[in-house]
Amino acid sequence: MHRVFNDLGLAVLVVVAMAVAPSIYSNQLLLFNFVMFLSLAQGLNVIYGFTGYLPFGYVGFFGAGAYGFALAVMHLGFGPPGAMAVGAAAAVVLALILTPLFRLSGAYFAIANLAAAQAVYEVVANPALEDVTKGPYGVSLSGVFAPNASYAAAVAILAFTLLLVVWLRNSQFGLSLRAIKEDPISAAMAGVSVVRGRTIAWLLSALIAGLVGGSFAWEVSVFYPETAFSPQFSIFAVVFALFGGTATLTGPLLGVFILYGVYNWIGISVPQYFQLIYGTLIVALVLFLPNGLVSLLTRRGIRVP
């Protein structure tokens, strides 16, 4: 039982810290980015850490969430909460459409998912759809701009995401996902529906990215397709989660705090060395700690939250 409380304690700590951070540190947009990547890295953790499928096109769900939000505001006159729900729904529907990708394994899944995200981007950015999506010219949602509220929404999404990961780590369902990841044949013979388990993890992962995308649209309120579908979101989510170590709560959190922290710090202080330092850090990690920072502890049999 105390395992759950360790996990919950960490989740609460992070959420409270990010909730009070704006009253201590004034750069709210930077804090928003931290909150956003904390959620995205954990959302990626839900699918990769618990099923082993690496979605290189994770940004597709984020972009679907951002554009779902924007379209609901522009065309349906929805307020931000309703628009956020539309964004989340758009991401989940996209995930449902992409479920056949699970027939592919390993790199093929990752590449197909990347292509799918690119396809959604192409549709959204298509000038012929200017009346609907504003095409390549981008959307402006200045009517709903409210940075304090959108920051609060992002923190709420982070709380939801962390609770979800705590649940996955401590529930029978989460255990069944780990079993599927280890050995899908044995899992099936143990009575676990492999398709159902993977699909649920996939939809939850997409839901998180969709919600985060919605909060991003609300926060920045003016954006272009190439912003909302920037591959950088996928890359960062993947790198942060892997750097810290997946299938844990701590790993992706550490990955974001350290790597995104370093990213902002060296990007400002020594921009000329930025890519060198950043690249070296990541290469070193992949070479020496392929299972992420937390594996320093977990491989000694220590359970981290």
């Binding site: 029978q172 255990l175 069944s176 780990r178 079993a179 280890e182 050995d183 044949i185 044995s186 899992a187 013979m189 143990a190 009575g191 676990v192 529906s193």
Partner: peptide, 28 residues
């Protein structure tokens, strides 16, 4: 209907207890 495997296929990273908990919970 259940079975064993010629080359064993347990869930390697899970504990022995967790291995049987899963099948008791999902495959009973």
């Amino acid at each position: 209907i259940n079975r064993t495997f010629q080359s064993p296929k347990p869930f390697l990273s899970l504990t022995v207890r967790e291995n049987v908990e899963i099948s008791a919970r999902y495959g009973h």
